[in-house]
């Protein structure tokens, strides 16, 4: 599903790329930028976490003519005299103004690196509102944002993800430069598709999906699985034939003493020891009735 997302986002889409300290999702974000640039789309980047040089350095190979970088990296809080873009300016009017500076026939894609930086200074409700307005406003075609999930409370991350049309969670893979992406995609009909893919990003920012560790959300239970008889291919026999049943009946079980068996076992051999017992009246003394012997 990852290549489909890279090929193009529907108008009004919001993609959130989630990462954590163990694996940075920035390279995947750059892949998205580079894919959009290769499709001749205009991309506006609001960069809080990387400088323009670093971003363009990472995008080598793609034409950066249609890339517009809005520098929120050098002074996001207005500590110096001439801030280019501060975190307070992250609202519908300012961003629309920023994007409209370059008049174009086609609405551009807006990339935010990263939403975490904004969320540290602006309340989650305001961020969600701005994102929703941007999606619906028509000034931008789609919004792609990076989010460091381990920096925020679960509720904040959850509310942003509810807003998104697609959520991609990246995590380190098992070996090498592999990574695992868990993708949740909501289509317009309301259908939710889940997918998990192992991918790696080539040097030219092309995403190569290596395998699908997929378990789709709306997976039908396999019909062939249901009909299989669990007793089909057993290595032992569950049922008995008539002859077998006869044989089973004939068999004398151990510890079940028939008359023959008893006599055979207790048969006295001449010369062997024998117990002689003559009942004695004294042996038959009943403790509970000491006067038993009295012939009353």
């Amino acid at each position: 599903m990852l290549p489909e997302l890279l090929q193009g986002v529907d108008a009004g889409g919001l993609i959130v790329i989630q990462d954590c300290a163990g694996y940075s999702g920035r390279r995947l974000l750059q892949s998205f930028i580079s894919a959009a640039l290769n499709r001749d789309e205009t991309v506006h980047v609001i960069g809080f976490e990387v400088s323009e040089e670093e971003l363009i350095g990472g995008l080598k190979g793609s034409s950066t003519q249609r890339l517009h970088f809005h520098d929120a990296f050098t002074d996001p809080l207005g500590w110096t005299d001439h801030p280019a873009f501060t975190v307070r300016q992250f609202n519908l009017d300012e961003v629309t103004h920023l994007v409209k500076q370059t008049s174009l026939p086609k609405a551009p894609t807006l990339v935010i690196d990263s939403l975490s930086w904004i969320l540290r200074h602006v309340s989650p409700a305001a961020v969600c509102k701005t994102l929703q307005q941007l999606r619906k406003g028509g000034a931008v075609r789609a919004v792609i944002g990076l989010l460091h999930t381990d920096m925020h409370q679960r509720g904040t991350v959850g509310s942003l993800c509810h807003l998104a049309t697609s959520v991609i969670t990246v995590a380190p893979g098992m070996k090498g430069d592999e990574a695992v992406a868990k993708i949740t995609k909501r289509s317009k009909s309301g259908k939710v598709m889940l997918d998990e893919e192992i991918f790696h990003i080539r040097e030219d920012l092309a995403v190569i999906v290596q395998s699908k560790a997929s378990h789709t959300g709306h997976k039908q239970p396999d019909p062939s699985e249901k009909e299989t008889d669990p007793t089909a291919n057993l290595t032992f026999n569950l049922r008995l034939s008539d002859t077998e049943r006869e044989a089973k009946k004939k068999l004398a079980l151990p510890f079940v003493f028939s008359k023959e068996k008893k006599t055979a076992l207790l048969h006295s051999v001449p010369g062997s020891g024998r117990i002689l017992y003559e009942p004695d009246a004294n042996d038959d003394f009943d403790q509970e009735d000491p006067d038993d012997d009295l012939d009353v």
Partner: peptide, 11 residues
């Protein structure tokens, strides 16, 4: 090492 862009290696 994080962000080794040149090598194409992430971490």
């Amino acid at each position: 090492w994080r962000r080794k862009e040149g090598d194409g290696q992430n971490t």
